[in-house]
């Protein structure tokens, strides 16, 4: 293979490249061949590797540099445009998500209020029934037993549910606290990283 056929094959394997870039590549390698002289032709071809391999190397490098350019931070205008385009779909979704979260929070709140009310009722019924039971025990044995039983059951339920709440609330508090702390740490880390990044970019522009 001589230089001409080598370059022709290289051109073939670079056919997907941008025409201007391709001409640039081919001109560069043609020049190297010409400057090296005919006697060094085969040596050069050996060093370049096959046209296919050289083309692959060049293409890989151009893709890499292009993707690095794409990795640049988005300009604020582009960001705003994308946000505007996303609004018709994003806004309803956002509103839905907001209401779902709101409903869940409200439901949780009402449920706990309900449970607390029920608990208080158990407690009240328990004490009252016990009182009535003790008082009516002397009048009628069966009524007294009935009220005493009701009172004991209610008091038992009251103690159970109250114990549950006494476990639940500190547990919830702890969970929320760790969640808050974790988010705070994460946000702090992000801010720090952004600051470092910004600083580096400043250095670069200097």
């Amino acid at each position: 293979m001589n230089a001409d056929t080598y370059l022709k094959r290289l051109k073939f394997f670079l056919r997907r490249m941008d025409p201007e870039d391709k001409d640039d590549v081919l001109a560069y390698y043609r020049e190297i061949f010409e400057d090296a002289g005919e006697e060094k032709e085969s040596e050069l071809i050996e060093e370049f590797g096959t046209p296919r391999r050289l083309a692959a190397e060049i293409l890989a490098d151009s893709y890499e540099s292009r993707s690095r350019e794409n990795g640049k931070p988005m300009s604020p205008w582009k960001m705003i445009l994308i946000l505007l385009l996303a609004l018709p779909v994003g806004l309803p979704l956002l509103i839905c998500a907001f209401f779902v979260v709101l409903c869940l929070a409200a439901a949780t709140l009402f449920l706990s209020i309900l449970l607390i009310c029920a608990d208080l009722c158990f407690g009240l019924t328990g004490i009252l029934s016990l009182l009535i039971g003790v008082l009516s025990f002397f009048q009628s044995f069966s009524i007294g037993i009935f009220y005493l039983g009701l009172g004991l059951t209610s008091t038992g339920l009251f103690i159970l549910v109250t114990r549950f709440f006494m476990w639940l609330f500190p547990w919830l508090y702890g969970k929320l606290k760790t969640l808050y702390q974790k988010t705070a740490v994460k946000l702090k880390g992000q801010m720090k990283r952004m600051k470092v990044k910004g600083g580096k970019e400043d250095e670069k522009t200097l």
Binding site: D35, E47, F48, L54, S65
Partner: peptide
């Protein structure tokens, strides 16, 4: 310098193939 001479200059100090320089120059 022109391409070939530049390659020669670099090759005097570091062992690189003739084809490695093109991407560098382009970048």
């Amino acid at each position: 310098l022109y391409g070939y001479l530049l390659t020669q200059e670099i090759q005097k100090v570091v062992d690189i193939s003739e084809s490695t320089l093109y991407p560098v120059l382009r970048r």
